[in-house]
Every structure is written in C-alpha cells, then in structure tokens.
C-alpha cells in the first residue's frame, strides 16, 4: 500500500551567515502492506510529520521516491489524493461553520454528489458517535468530538488508506480510549489500511500491528511491538524492602539480574524471563532473611525499546533539539 525509498526532505533555515540546511527526513525506506495498521513512532522533531506530509502529497520530497496506494506521490499526486484519507493534527474544519456542512463540502471536493456526501456523512456521524451534532459548530464541540469530526472528514470518500497524524494528542484519557476504539474499527469495519503517527508508546502498542521507529530523520526499527520488546534484555523486576535490607536485597537480585540499581528502598534490575526466575528469587530472598514489602515485574515498554535502540529515552530525545519539525 505504501512503498518509500530513500525519502529525503531538507529545509533551509536562518539567513546570511546563519543559513544552514536541515535534513528533517534523511533517507527513509518503508513498506506498508494492505490491511496493516502501522504505528509511526518517534520523539517530536524526529521527522514523523514531515514524512507523513510527503506521503500525502502535501510536501514534495527533496529526494527519493514513494508509491502510495499504487501511485507515485509526485507524478500521480491527484490519484494518490483520491485514494487516501488524511486526519491532520491541526484539525480540518472551520470553527464557525456547521460540522455537517464542512463534511459535505469536503466530500464534494472529492467529486461526490451532494446527496451522496450527505448520506455518507450522516452514516459516519453515527458510526463515530456524533449523531445530533450535524448542525453544531466545531467551536462548541469537545476536544474528542472535534477529533472524531476530523476523522469523519478524512473518511468521507471511503479511502482505502488512512493517515492519522497524532490522533489523540491533547485528548483526555476517556476520549482517547474512545478514539482508539474507532481507529481499530477503521480496519475491522472498513477494511482500511492505517498509518498513524504518535509519540505515545502505549498508543502504538495498543493499535499497531507493526511499529516503525524514526529518530533524527531515519528509520531505526520496524517490527511488531512484541519483537521490539524482545530486543530489550529482560523484564524489569522492582523490589521494595525496608531500608536496612537494601544492600542484601540488591546482592540477591544481582545474582540473576543485570544492571541492578537502588533508589531509596527500591531495588531494581533486568531479569531474563522474569516469570520463571521470580519463584527462585523469592526463595533466595527468604533464606537470606530479606522481607519484601512488594515485588513488581514490568514487561519492557516501547520506551525501553527506544532507549535500547538510540541510547536515549523518548523524553530525553524530545528535549534535545535535533532537527526541527515542520508540522505546520
């Protein structure tokens, strides 16, 4: 459904002496199969949105090629636009217009007849739980409703491939979970291929069959969440003990774990196949006279994966200015 080879996007920033070339996307190769839900993950400024804008024909690649829905993004941009839906992170409707009007006009720009656009729009309003909001202005909608309206806009012409740019940014947890259900429905109900960018690890984890990780303009990983997590060495085992037993607990944990750290009364380390190792650890601790206040076993998160792949945590990667993201 999507094939990209060597995509590059450079921007020029600064003037005169400060002029320099920024490579926001620096040779991206990616493939997405029909029916796949792919999560495109990376810190802010990694090149997610820029890549997305090239794939959706909004930005002409500086170099490289991309085929989307069977068409070349440069030479056949109109056919690409006809085949894809795009839900941008900034919104798509005017705050002072009726939601239904915006949706119908949008459908008509895709060449749909008015009655057809109205029928399809009302169907989508129902599916996305916006019934009764046809004559509501976006400025009077909640964040979650507005985002679902953006999804309706992106789906009005029945695209076979849907791009979602940071779909749940800024939503409260409930609206977020609700939108996740709808995104899952894109494939299960509509059979669409979905390509979504996010910088939330749990979002990629929950929605995507496969995760692409981009950092500083290049793809650093592409695999299922489980396989990516398997690259992280082991599960995190966290023990909590009384202060005078910390050293002994660390010693015992150290016999089976790597990278043991203590933090106050907490002792943690990475253990291969923690599920099998923990019973032995418990016996060991007991015979050493360590009394546990609590024990926790944490499966690796995508944050751990990012750390393993790049040597930085996602949060650190966001605070270090690398290449600037042109999201606008």
């Amino acid at each position: 459904m999507i094939t990209a080879r060597g995509l590059v996007q450079t921007f020029h920033t600064g003037r005169g002496k400060n002029a320099r070339e920024v490579r926001a996307v620096d040779g991206v190769d990616l493939d997405v199969a029909e029916g796949e839900v792919v999560g495109f993950l990376g810190p802010n400024g990694a090149g997610k949105t820029t890549t997305l804008r090239m794939l959706t024909t909004l930005l002409r690649p500086t170099a490289g090629t991309a085929t989307v829905a069977g068409y070349d993004v440069v030479a056949e941009s109109v056919q690409v636009r006809r085949s894809i839906g795009y839900v941008s992170q900034v919104g798509s409707t005017f705050s002072g217009a009726y939601a239904g009007d915006e949706v119908v006009d949008h459908g008509m720009l895709y060449g749909m007849a008015r009655v057809e656009a109205v029928r399809r729009g009302q169907e989508l309003f129902e599916q996305l739980q916006l019934d009764g909001l046809w004559k509501r202005m976006p400025k009077n909608m909640s964040g979650g409703q507005k985002r679902r309206l953006d999804v309706v806009m992106g789906l009005i012409h029945d695209p076979s491939l849907v791009f979602l740019d940071e779909p749940t940014t800024g939503l409260d947890p409930q609206a977020r979970a609700n939108l996740w259900d709808h995104i899952e429905g894109l494939r299960s109900r509509l059979g669409a291929t979905v390509f979504l960018t996010t910088h939330y690890l749990d979002e990629a984890d929950a929605l995507a069959d496969r995760i692409l990780i981009i950092d500083q303009g290049t793809i650093v990983a592409s695999d299922t969440a489980d396989n990516l997590k398997a690259q992280v060495s082991g599960d995190l085992v966290v023990l909590e003990v009384s202060a005078d037993q910390v050293t002994r607990a660390a010693e015992r944990l150290g016999s089976i774990a790597d990278g043991v750290e203590t933090d106050g009364r907490r002792v943690s380390g990475r253990v291969q196949r923690a599920g099998r190792a923990v019973p032995g650890l418990l016996r060991d601790l007991e015979s050493a006279g360590v009394e546990l206040d609590s024990i926790e076993v944490l499966r690796p998160t995508l944050d751990d994966v990012f750390l393993t792949l790049t040597g930085r945590s996602l949060r650190d990667a966001e605070s270090t200015p690398t290449t600037e993201e042109v999201s606008a």
Binding site: T56, L58, Y86, V90, G91, S92, H106, Y110
Partner: peptide
C-alpha cells in the same frame, strides 16, 4: 484551523 491543508489533500 487546518482547513487549507484539508482542502489541499483533496
């Protein structure tokens, strides 16, 4: 508000 961008992807 993203209207221009939405029109440009059509």
């Amino acid at each position: 508000e993203g209207v221009i961008e939405a029109e440009r992807v059509t």
